[in-house]
Design a protein around this nucleic acid. Structure first.
Length: 288
DNA sequence: AGTGTATCCTGCAGGC
DNA sequence: TGCCTGCAGGATACAC
């Protein structure tokens, strides 16, 4: 999906165009995107004023007047498109974003249209009441860019965990917002092999991993995300971080640190990429 | 506890 | 050109 940097970029683009506006009309083209069903979704959303658009992990969070929250999980190919001029000067949207697979359209009281578009339809949209939102919020792990994401907290979370560190990083209950691209990039940065047991990382490795996660995510946000194929921001614009990837999708290409050939392995049915020299494999099943 | 497998879907790249 | 296979930023349910 869209991982944390992509969700952050979309939220920043959508917020100024919808904050303070009221949802006038809800048009549902793909009911399957709404786990709550059309009735609950529409009833809760119609007429509500949008206060703020933010992010929690990989999810977009539209805070509504009255405490309800529109929670959008973008799945693999979800987009939130807001046609029309971008309010931020010097940030032009060259082409109006076109929705190829519109799923939900919102018409706001100033005429603004917000389109949820999703080719594969793995995404979901829900309107949660305050209690439901609290529960969902608590189920997610810490925000890696927040001050609370300390080495101590990371160490405690990893302790005694036997799953491969790459799998641990993808578990949203452990840490919120990291997906397959940035997990692989952070592990390369930290010089930790994806198969290492989470609980086996040494103090210095944990410290490097924490710094690696944070620096990769920050730099990816600066680049407005990674577009491999489908990702677009609210303007329909691509992210530019793909050119800066160190390992993801680079099988057979030289490591940017040591020149070794990047390897691809399969872990939990998903690709993992690593430099065999910079990220030494654990011996046998594992151990540090 | 943790892993492999399958599932939801569509689109696209690559091989032949 | 066209058909077929495999693969994809996610999340979850299941059997083992």
């Amino acid at each position: 999906m869209p991982e944390l940097p992509e969700a952050e970029t979309i939220a920043r683009g959508v917020h100024p165009r919808v904050a303070g506006r009221r949802v006038q009309e809800v048009q549902i083209l793909r009911p399957g995107l709404l786990p709550q069903g059309e009735r609950t979704f529409s009833t809760r959303l119609a007429g509500a004023r949008i206060l703020k658009v933010g992010r929690r992990g990989k999810n977009l969070v539209f805070r509504l007047e009255g405490g309800h929250v529109l929670l959008v999980n973008l799945g693999m190919t979800g987009r939130v498109l807001v046609p029309g001029p971008s309010p931020s000067p010097g940030n032009p949207a060259p082409h109006p974003p076109e929705a190829g697979h519109p799923g939900v359209r919102l018409r706001l009281d100033d005429g603004t249209e917000v389109v949820y578009d999703d080719a594969r339809r793995f995404g979901t949209l829900e309107v949660l009441n305050p209690g439901e939102w609290r529960a969902r919020h608590r189920a997610l792990g810490p925000e890696p860019l927040s001050p609370g994401f300390t080495a101590e907290r990371l160490t405690a979370g990893l302790a005694r965990r036997r799953s491969p560190i790459r799998s641990w990083l993808l578990d949203q209950r452990r840490i919120a917002g990291v997906g397959n691209i940035y997990a692989n990039e952070a592990l390369w940065t930290a010089r930790v092999h994806p198969l290492r047991q989470a609980g086996s990382l040494t103090g210095p490795e944990v410290a490097r991993l924490r710094r690696g996660i944070r620096s990769i995510l920050r730099r990816a946000i600066e680049a407005r995300g990674t577009t491999l194929r489908d990702y677009r921001d609210a303007d329909g614009t691509r992210g530019s971080f793909a050119a800066l990837l160190r390992v993801y999708g680079r099988e057979g290409e030289p490591c940017r640190r040591c020149g070794s050939s990047i390897e691809r392995i399969v872990l939990s049915n998903r690709s993992a990429f690593l430099c065999p020299r910079c990220q030494p494999a654990p011996r046998e099943p594992d151990a540090p």
